[in-house]
């Protein structure tokens, strides 16, 4: 799956996007976040408070309980501030 990070999530993790093979138990967005937090201090810092993060799967907003699958594009970012 392709992961994308924006704004301060991107800065804390240190990359804008990456392709990962997540473990099978990472079946939902929140499971995926739990796994990502184990990948290093930048991830742990970025995902420390997931209430401050919005999630999109294949360019649509989703809740943390939304399922994820290989081939999905999953994005993590703070609440939007355009306009």
């Amino acid at each position: 799956m392709k992961l994308m990070y924006f704004a301060w999530v991107r800065q804390r993790i240190g990359t804008a996007s990456e392709t990962v093979d997540a473990p099978a138990e990472a079946a939902t967005v929140e499971d995926l976040v739990a796994w990502l937090k184990t990948r290093g201090p930048g991830y742990a810092e970025a995902f420390r408070d997931t209430r401050a993060i919005r999630f999109a799967v294949n360019q649509e907003y989703v809740e943390p309980t939304h399922p994820v699958a290989a081939g999905d594009e999953i994005a993590f970012f703070p609440p939007v501030t355009g306009g």
Partner: peptide, 14 residues
């Protein structure tokens, strides 16, 4: 349109 854009469109200001 501007109200919805401000809460849904994925832009971030720094």
């Amino acid at each position: 349109l501007i109200d919805w854009l401000k809460t849904k469109a994925p832009f971030w200001k720094r």
